[in-house]
Amino acid sequence: MPIYDLGYRHWTGRWTSHPYRWWAITRRGIGMLAKNKRFLILMILSGIPFLVRAVMIYASTLVSDRVPMLRIDAGFFEDFLTQQMRFFALIIAVYAGAGLISNDLKANALQIYLSKPITRRDYLIGKLGILVFFLALPTLVPGLLLFLLAILFKANIDFLREFYWVPGSILGYSALIMFGFSLVMLALSSLSKSSRFAGVNFIAVFFFSHILCNILSSILRTSHVAWISLPNNLTQVGDMLFGRQPKYLSPVWASIVALAVLAWGSLWIIHRRIRAVEVIS
């Protein structure tokens, strides 16, 4: 073969199996975000509440459970996820997720994706995987680590016997935050070519639904309308998962239905927007 002809050779390697094709999208997306310094700083900052809670667990072993604030029970883990990590999850969802689809729309990248042996489902799972991964880092991972620390510091089999179900609750509640935030964020990202638009809308969905709920609650003088608010719904289901009395008067099933409708609506939007016919200009 002449030397100038070395530029193009036929490839005879083995193809990867199709069921894992989405992993290429997830892996590349994670890699790209991990190189972003500002995003890394945000992720590091999201670890601060974990450190504080870890110190609290250690302190609780010194003063036993006499100080209510240092009582390590199921509520301790729910509060950690709801009061601290959910805020970081929101910021991370906006930072990492707003451009996931909108930037592809802006750069006409869907033509590249869909001309390869990639289905719409592969594309969605791939993009979802990126967000779920980064949302697991401030929710599921520290939640389970805290539980592990509690077992280690307590060194007490009674604690494990009493709260053996809490890891399942942490997993369920984290999954709710991870997938709920991811689906809504991706749906909003697919609606526009502007990542800024998607990010602002996500924050609007989160806070405006809460403000609307508060206004209605004030007018009607009841918290039966808590299901209108996305954060309240998460809290209600979280209370149920961690075996606590629900914070609001609205039934938990209403919150579950509201979250299911939101997830279904998000999937419907994504399905409508990420279509091969998008390629037709």
């Binding site: 390697g13 290429a24 451009g99 802006k106 990248a109 033509q111 590249i112 390869k116 990639i118 200009s281």
Partner: peptide
Amino acid sequence: NDCHIPGMNAVAFVAYAGELAGMP
């Protein structure tokens, strides 16, 4: 029309296209 995967250099973009097609 003009299309690319945003935020990538050329070699990363082309390699990514290969991975999407099913190459290791």
